[in-house]
Simulated assay, not measured.
Amino acid sequence: MTEWLIAQQGALSIALGLMLIAERFTAKMGALFTYKLWTIVPAILLLNNLPTNSILVTRYSISQYTVNTTPTVATQHVNVLFYLWALGAGAIIIITLFHYLSVNSSLKKVSINRDVVYYSLQARSPILFGFINPKIVLPLNFERMFCEAQQQMIIEHESVHKHHMDHLWNGFTFVLITLFWFNPLVWIALKAFRTNQELACDYKVLSNKSDKETLIYAKALVQCAEQSPQTLSLYPTFGEKSTMKKRLMLMKEKFPQSRLAAFAAVALSVLLMANTAAANMPPSPKNHAEGNGHVPNEPKVNEASPIAHVSPTYPEDAAKTNTEGYVVLQFDITETGATDNITVVKSSPEGVFDKSASSALKQWQYKPRVQNGQALRQTGLLVQLDYKLSSDDAD
């Protein structure tokens, strides 16, 4: 898992960096266009994880280990990074779940102008709440704070969030933050993404409104921001303070949209996605065969060494009868470094050490083979375990 998380950081950071730059040109490219451009992030992650073929390991050499009755200390591999990541991811999940249950338990269903909404004591600002079945949630003082025109536009704003499928996008951001919380760019990009999300809704709501209605809407935004907490939420909130300045600026000024800026953003996005896809494609087979049939420079992937292994137990009956022997096992290394598909290729004496060898190999852990940021499965590896009695046992 740790290797996979690290392998994603290059492509993810470049995609997020590109979107942070694009967010600065929202006024020139348009709020809706810039918001749609965020699809590059899941696209890059998808392309960076395209399935690739397994590596068939050559069988010209066999890793060999000696097993005896003298106790040996097994190598213990503790992945500290994984536990640190799991601690952070678990904290995010627990905090989000606690907030969800707290808000959900306080919901009271009402109807305003034929719109089904919910009131909640936990809501400081109107929000679209939930990732699966989203609900428009309003603060208890909603009708006292805003005039009827403001109420209608605020509810329209939250309805646009729902129409844009923002609840699904927010679910994706939750997964992204949970997986990659250790990357500071993810948190910076979340703020930029939330800004674009609100700007896109503002643009949609105000597209057919008069200047007077726009002013009323802006006043509602400021009123709401005074009641909203400063913390960044996973749910889109109408009066989010961190997005306030840019939202008011775009309402006040009518910036001409630049086709050149939009074209440059699309071109860079396509180039990045094409490069990511090409980097993860399996290399085309090349004919290296020479006249004598020798394949030069063949990678010795069969020399993979375990990073954690359990020493096999010497069978008691074999030790009593001074029996020595060996077992040749064939196995695969999975994308996570675990062993799989273990089979006995050859053993001597037949059947004496097979169970002991197979049981031990199941617990071995290898470093996963990573190619172009993608963990690959290795198949057809061979290992020989030689069962030899120590001199003290043989006497």
Rank of each mutant, 00 (worst) to 15 (best):
7 A>S: 15
7 A>P: 05
8 Q>H: 08
14 I>T: 01
21 I>F: 06
22 A>L: 03
22 A>H: 03
27 A>N: 15
54 S>R: 12
64 Q>P: 08
65 Y>F: 04
66 T>G: 08
72 T>G: 04
77 H>K: 01
89 A>I: 01
99 H>V: 05
112 I>V: 09
124 R>G: 12
133 N>A: 07
161 H>Y: 06
163 H>L: 12
163 H>G: 13
164 H>A: 10
164 H>W: 06
169 W>T: 10
175 V>L: 07
179 L>C: 03
184 P>H: 02
185 L>E: 01
187 W>A: 07
190 L>R: 00
196 N>K: 14
215 L>F: 10
227 Q>H: 07
233 S>R: 03
234 L>G: 01
236 P>G: 07
237 T>I: 00
243 T>V: 08
244 M>Y: 12
247 R>F: 03
249 M>A: 12
252 K>A: 11
256 P>Q: 13
257 Q>W: 10
258 S>T: 10
269 S>K: 02
274 A>H: 10
277 A>L: 09
287 N>T: 05
294 H>K: 05
296 P>H: 09
298 E>M: 07
321 T>I: 04
322 N>H: 15
325 G>H: 02
334 T>N: 09
338 A>K: 08
339 T>D: 00
347 S>W: 11
354 D>W: 00
355 K>H: 03
357 A>M: 01
357 A>L: 03
364 W>P: 00
364 W>D: 00
370 V>F: 07
371 Q>T: 05
377 R>A: 06
377 R>W: 03
379 T>L: 02
387 Y>I: 09
388 K>G: 09
391 S>L: 01
395 D>S: 08
